Amino acid sequence: MTLSHDVAGDGPALVLLHSGVCDRRMWDAQWLTLIDAGYRLVRCDLRGFGGTPAPDRPHNDAEDVQDLLNSLGIRQAALVGSSYGGHVALEIAARWPDRVSALALVCSALPGHEPSAELNALGEREEALLEAGDIVGATELMVETWLGPDADETTREAVRRMQRQAFELQMAVAEEFEPIEAEIDLAAIQAPCLAVSGAHDLADFRQIAARLPDLLADAEHVELPWAGHLPSLERPSTVTDLLIGFLKGTIPAV
């Protein structure tokens, strides 16, 4: 199955991977600016998000993204991942290090991370609401949890739409299939990495970003004092400038 996706622009390839509460539309504010900066952009919906159906069999999201890039003839790309999209980006960079030119991880999850009691409790509240059929309540829980204080109502409504659609897609299937977790070695990652965290985010993701310089060969950590978990939506132009500054120093456009 081919992931629903968009491709545009010319220059070095740049793949945008969405968070687990959004879909590829979360990158709308960055899309044209990154194209104008000289990059060939790809953004996709993982299974069960946006325009891609929920999985009907065991699958691996990193392999899905690799299959998409193969179909597009992209041999090497920089990866920008938000939250769960960062988890996918790290897996790709560890399993196929020669195919990743740079990593920009925004409030990223981490393969093998042991969730805190706070994060587990959040997951239990979400699951209880969904089991009760309260998609609206589960959606509002996610909006309130993951967006920081700078997010305006337009941004909140955008996340609300994306998250609700994801819940509806995922709950419409008869059987739920979790992604297959692959064994990976983060030490295999050689691409330069920018790890961004938000001061208003859950502790798990702040700690992951702070750890990445110790786990990867070439990583820098930047914390945004104003940000929650989705800073690319909360202050889009600020994050776009941060990404372009990092990319220009690692994979400059021709």
Rank of each mutant, 00 (worst) to 15 (best):
T2A: 13
T2N: 15
L3Q: 00
V7Q: 10
A8H: 00
G11D: 03
L16V: 01
L16I: 09
S19Y: 02
V21N: 07
C22T: 15
D23K: 01
M26N: 07
W27T: 07
L34H: 06
L34I: 00
D36W: 10
D36A: 12
A37M: 05
G38T: 06
Y39D: 02
C44V: 10
D45P: 05
D45F: 03
G48S: 04
G48D: 01
T52M: 10
P55A: 12
P55C: 02
D56P: 10
P58Y: 03
N60K: 06
N60C: 13
D61G: 14
E63H: 13
V65K: 00
V65F: 03
D67I: 07
D67K: 12
S71I: 10
I74H: 07
Q76H: 14
A78E: 01
V80G: 02
V80I: 10
G81N: 06
S82G: 13
S83A: 06
Y84I: 14
G85N: 04
E91C: 04
E91S: 02
I92C: 00
R95G: 02
W96F: 13
D98L: 15
S101V: 11
S101A: 10
A102F: 01
A104C: 13
S108E: 11
A117S: 13
E118A: 14
L119C: 11
A121S: 14
R125K: 10
E126Q: 15
E131L: 15
A132T: 10
G133K: 05
I135W: 08
I135A: 14
V136G: 10
A138L: 00
T139V: 07
E140S: 07
L141Q: 00
E144M: 11
T145P: 01
D150P: 09
A151C: 12
D152E: 05
E153D: 14
R156S: 08
M162V: 01
A166G: 06
E168F: 03
L169D: 05
A172L: 11
A174V: 13
E175K: 15
E175G: 11
E176V: 15
P179N: 11
I180G: 13
I180R: 14
D185W: 07
L186T: 05
A187D: 13
A188F: 13
A191S: 13
P192F: 00
A195K: 04
S197N: 05
D201C: 02
A203H: 13
D204K: 07
F205Q: 09
F205C: 08
R206T: 08
I208C: 09
A210E: 09
A217V: 05
D218G: 09
A219E: 08
V222A: 06
P225S: 03
W226V: 06
L233V: 11
E234W: 03
P236L: 04
L242H: 06
I244T: 01
I244Y: 01
T250F: 12
P252R: 03
V254P: 15
